[in-house]
């Protein structure tokens, strides 16, 4: 069965084709594909969340990359929520219209289910049950993933996501926005231990996070010390150490509490070198296997939606053509399959 996946919940328009036996055939994000011709030579900077203009060219491009025809598609999975209502509606309505024209079923997929199952797109996927640390600009969560539709939220951020904290701290240090990766680079030149920032909620006894207060702590440091390159690097270092330590301690605590020895680190922050080094080192000492999915599957993408949809469509016989979106949608409302 060939499933077309459509993701439009936030910034990225992501399209993918997933085949039940042959795996992922093609996937594309609007930012990666040369669609210049479609726009008369210019990819509009303006309206970066304007999914309408790019979704159809991107579907055409993906079908072409997969060397198949639109008529080969057997089902369409789209992100139904949570996310921006207007953005979600673009994907949902295109999915429904295409499905109607092709006389095939559609299925609304939960965005976070896509993220949680995306490690299974890898060649050496983790077996269920595993713990997932999802750390990105929009999410900081620890989940227990027991199977398709079997998710338990173990902890999450109470305010800012870890990636957001990186981006905003970068801005506070004059690195522009979003500057998370630039901040990590600057931190590598910093002197460890010169500054010490708080580790928010590290002893809270639960698996929740809070990163908003670190902004104030960084601001206070940055006001006190001259804005020279060395001080900025040292502050960046202290900031990164604080975040990495909190993420490492809580992720390993989640593994210990649940007894599952597999940890998946997904999301853009999962690419952070210091986080990987510290987490892998500590996990190895404790006999825990850590999985880092490819970055392209960690950030928002269509492949995870096609894949999650395909898993559900295997067990579901639907001909429903109605569509709706859910700006708010709790993961625990999903049915297990």
């Amino acid at each position: 069965m060939l499933t077309l996946g459509i993701e439009t919940s936030c910034d990225e328009t992501g399209i993918a084709l997933y085949h039940g036996e042959r795996g992922l055939l093609a996937h594309a994000l609007h930012s990666q594909v040369a669609m210049h011709a479609e726009y008369g030579g210019v990819v509009p900077e303006l309206a970066s969340r304007d999914h309408i203009r790019r979704i159809v060219p991107l579907i055409r491009e993906t079908v072409k990359m997969a060397a198949c025809e639109l008529s080969d598609v057997d089902a369409i999975a789209y992100t139904q929520g949570p996310g921006l209502a207007g953005a979600l509606l673009v994907g949902a309505s295109v999915a429904a219209a295409l499905a109607y024209a092709l006389n095939i079923p559609t299925l609304g997929v939960h965005h976070l289910e896509g993220h949680l199952l995306s490690p299974l797109l890898e060649e050496n996927p983790p077996a269920f049950t595993f713990i997932a640390l999802l750390v990105s600009g929009g999410h900081t969560q620890l989940m227990e993933v027991g199977g398709v539709g079997r998710y338990a939220l173990l902890g999450e951020t109470l305010d800012d996501a870890a990636g957001e904290a990186f981006d905003k701290t970068a801005k506070l240090l004059g690195l522009g926005y979003p500057g998370g990766p630039a901040l990590s680079k600057l931190a590598e030149q910093g002197t460890p231990g010169r500054f010490k920032l708080p580790r928010p909620m590290i002893n809270s006894g639960d698996l929740n996070f809070s990163f908003s207060g670190l902004k104030t702590a960084v601001l206070t440091l940055a006001r006190k010390h001259a804005p020279d390159e060395a001080s900025r690097a040292d502050i960046a270092r202290a900031f990164q150490e604080a975040i990495v330590e909190v993420l490492t301690v809580k992720a390993l605590a989640a593994v210990q509490q649940t007894g599952h020895r597999r940890l998946v680190v997904a999301g853009g922050v999962g690419a952070n070198r210091q986080l990987r080094a510290q987490l892998s080192g500590a996990a190895q000492r404790q006999g825990i296997d850590v999985y880092y999915p490819k970055l392209e599957f960690c950030t928002d993408n269509g492949a995870m939606i096609a894949f999650a949809g395909a898993q559900r469509l295997r067990h579901l016989n639907t001909q429903d053509r109605r569509f709706n979106v859910r700006a708010r949608w709790e993961l625990n409302q999903l049915e297990a399959v």
Partner: peptide, 13 residues
């Protein structure tokens, strides 16, 4: 419930 920053999502209802 949690009141998260809407920087990424743009709006929290």
């Amino acid at each position: 419930g949690k009141v998260k920053s809407p920087t990424y999502t743009l709006v929290e209802p």
